[in-house]
Amino acid sequence: MVEYDFDAAVDRRGTASVQWDGVADRFGVDGLLPFTISDMDFPSPPQVLDALRERLAHGVFGYTDWRLGDFRAAICEWYATRYGTELDPERIVYGPSVLNQLSQLLRMWTEPGDGVVVHTPTYDGFRKAVDGLGRELRGVPVGDVAGLERELARGDSRVLLLCSPHNPTGRVWTDAELREMARLAETYDVAVISDEIHADFVHEGYRHLPWTRFAGERGRWAVITSGSKSFNFPALTGSYGIVGDPQERAAFVRRMETGEGLASPAALSLTAHIAAYRRAGEWLDALRSYIAGNLTMIADRLNGAFPELGWTPPQAGYLAWIDLRALGVPDEALQRELIEREKVAIMPGGVYGAPGFVRLNAGCPRAKAEAGTDALVRALSRLV
Results as ranks from 00 to 15, higher is better:
residue 33 L to D: 11
residue 158 R to Y: 10
residue 6 F to G: 01
residue 311 W to Q: 10
residue 365 P to A: 02
residue 29 V to H: 08
residue 124 D to N: 05
residue 214 F to R: 04
residue 117 V to K: 01
residue 11 D to K: 08
residue 321 W to L: 10
residue 116 V to R: 00
residue 73 A to Y: 05
residue 153 A to G: 12
residue 224 I to Y: 12
residue 60 V to R: 08
residue 63 Y to W: 08
residue 121 P to V: 14
residue 17 S to T: 12
residue 374 D to H: 02
residue 27 F to I: 04
residue 197 I to G: 00
residue 273 H to T: 04
residue 26 R to T: 10
residue 335 Q to L: 11
residue 144 D to Y: 11
residue 281 G to T: 08
residue 72 R to F: 05
residue 279 R to F: 10
residue 155 G to F: 11
residue 73 A to S: 13
residue 268 L to N: 05
residue 354 A to F: 05
residue 91 R to S: 07
residue 92 I to R: 01
residue 307 P to K: 00
residue 324 L to R: 04
residue 206 Y to G: 01
residue 333 A to R: 11
residue 10 V to N: 09
residue 351 V to W: 06
residue 204 E to N: 02
residue 63 Y to S: 13
residue 206 Y to Q: 06
residue 123 Y to G: 02
residue 97 S to F: 14
residue 11 D to Q: 12
residue 358 V to P: 00
residue 188 Y to M: 14
residue 235 A to W: 15
residue 67 R to K: 12
residue 228 S to W: 11
residue 364 C to S: 14
residue 119 H to K: 03
residue 350 G to M: 02
residue 209 L to A: 09
residue 9 A to Q: 08
residue 378 R to C: 04
residue 30 D to K: 03
residue 71 F to N: 02
residue 368 K to I: 07
residue 165 P to S: 00
residue 373 T to L: 04
residue 70 D to T: 10
residue 311 W to E: 11
residue 327 L to A: 02
residue 82 R to N: 05
residue 205 G to C: 04
residue 245 D to I: 15
residue 136 E to C: 11
residue 272 A to H: 14
residue 184 L to V: 06
residue 189 D to W: 02
residue 298 I to R: 07
residue 46 P to V: 02
residue 142 V to K: 12
residue 104 Q to W: 10
residue 343 K to F: 12
residue 145 V to C: 05
residue 383 L to H: 00
residue 377 V to Y: 11
residue 108 M to T: 09
residue 310 G to W: 07
residue 200 D to A: 15
residue 285 D to K: 04
residue 342 E to P: 05
residue 136 E to L: 14
residue 339 I to R: 07
residue 291 I to V: 15
residue 337 E to P: 03
residue 217 E to L: 13
residue 21 D to R: 11
residue 276 A to D: 12
residue 288 R to K: 13
residue 142 V to P: 04
residue 133 L to K: 09
residue 228 S to L: 13
residue 281 G to Q: 14
residue 135 R to A: 11
residue 15 T to C: 10
residue 63 Y to L: 14
residue 369 A to Y: 09
residue 24 A to L: 02
residue 170 G to E: 01
residue 339 I to M: 08
residue 98 V to Y: 03
residue 149 E to G: 06
residue 343 K to W: 13
residue 281 G to H: 08
residue 27 F to C: 04
residue 367 A to N: 01
residue 280 A to R: 15
residue 170 G to I: 00
residue 367 A to I: 05
residue 378 R to P: 07
residue 351 V to M: 06
residue 115 G to W: 06
residue 254 R to P: 01
residue 25 D to C: 03
residue 238 G to C: 13
residue 8 A to W: 04
residue 218 R to W: 15
residue 272 A to N: 14
residue 90 E to V: 09
residue 312 T to K: 15
